[in-house]
């Protein structure tokens, strides 16, 4: 085994009939981190998750989860992963507790442990009061929470979350984010697909952008933002310092008191401010503007879509 990555995929390929879902995907995830897999609809995110969670066989390429080969050791893989798919996959006719206990037994935890684990998870996900009601009566947010709880029954090392907050109201979404953050701080590795860039920005330490069946960008949110657009500093000075400011640092004026300058990291910002201080310019207000992940997403996915044609 190489590198010590907990998820490692090389050249994964999958076609459905004449449609190529994945052309050749390489992916590495380090233990205990969160990887956000972004991409437009139909980019292959769900296909990727289904392959890595043993639901789908790839046409080509190799992948290993926690050192177990997906093709030859699917059973071992299934023991260490948890999956929360796009659709809630709990039984609406059973109660929350019955769902959890059933899943625990199906993970062969033994009856007593399954019961205890169910009680623990109900508590942790705020479902104690609803525990003995049929899931069909739950709200969308409660179902999602139960769904996440069910994927944690076996205390998996790796959790796949396929658009976990799609269709949730903002409060439920925030609550779910906090629960996911708790999991990460407890050491769980997470592969998250999402349409919400805000979600990726908040939860993921690293982001991979999938488009046209390939990973077109991979890095920390910061790196990706830097890749598509420069960071700009906005310096507000006294009106009579404007010309001197622009002579010292370049950039362009936004209004009669503000100059916008491209900067490249903290060192650059320090240099900029030092030069202005040396020139005797007083900076009244200072702000940094980063491109958002939305900019990243738009730039990357439109580029490759055009390239593919």
């Amino acid at each position: 085994m190489s590198g010590g990555y907990i998820i490692e995929a090389n050249g994964l390929r999958k076609t459905f009939g004449s449609v190529t879902a994945l052309e050749s995907v390489d992916l590495q995830v380090e233990r205990g981190t969160v990887l956000g897999l972004l991409g437009p609809n139909g980019a292959g995110k769900t296909t990727m998750v289904r392959i890595l969670s043993t639901l789908l066989k790839a046409d080509g390429g190799r992948a290993a989860i926690a050192g177990y080969d997906l093709d030859t050791q699917p059973r071992q893989v299934r023991k260490v992963i948890g999956l929360t798919g796009q659709e809630t996959s709990v039984d609406p006719l059973l109660t929350g507790r019955e769902n959890l206990v059933m899943m625990g037994r199906l993970f062969h935890l033994g009856a007593a442990v399954a019961e205890r684990r169910a009680a623990e998870l109900l508590e942790r996900f705020g479902l104690v009061e609803a525990a003995d009601r049929q899931v069909g009566t739950y709200s969308g947010g409660m179902r999602r929470r139960l769904d996440l709880a069910v994927s944690l029954v076996s205390s998996p090392q790796i959790l796949f979350l396929d658009e976990p907050t799609t269709g949730l109201d903002p409060t439920s979404r925030m609550a779910l984010w906090e629960m996911i953050e708790d999991l990460v701080s407890a050491g769980t590795t997470i592969l998250l697909t999402t349409q919400y860039l805000e979600e990726a920005d908040r939860l993921a330490g690293r982001i991979a952008v999938l488009n046209g069946g390939r990973i077109v960008a991979d890095g920390t949110p910061y790196e990706l933002k830097r890749q598509v657009g420069e960071e700009r500093a906005e310096l507000t000075v006294r009106a009579d310092d404007l010309t001197r400011t622009m002579a010292t640092v370049g950039g362009e004026s936004i209004d009669e008191r503000t100059v916008s300058v491209a900067v490249n990291g903290p060192d650059d910002v320090r240099g900029l401010l030092n030069r202005l201080a040396d020139a005797g310019v007083e900076v009244v207000r200072f702000a940094l503007h980063q491109p958002t992940l939305d900019d990243v997403f738009r730039t990357l996915t439109s580029k490759t879509t055009e390239g593919a044609k």
């Binding site: 299934r78 023991k79 992963i81 809630t88 996959s89 899943m103 993970f107 076996s154």
Partner: peptide, 13 residues
């Protein structure tokens, strides 16, 4: 349809 089979299939059962 509701996805519970997907979950079962991702489990060591």
């Amino acid at each position: 349809q509701n996805g519970i089979v997907e979950r079962f299939k991702s489990m060591p059962m």
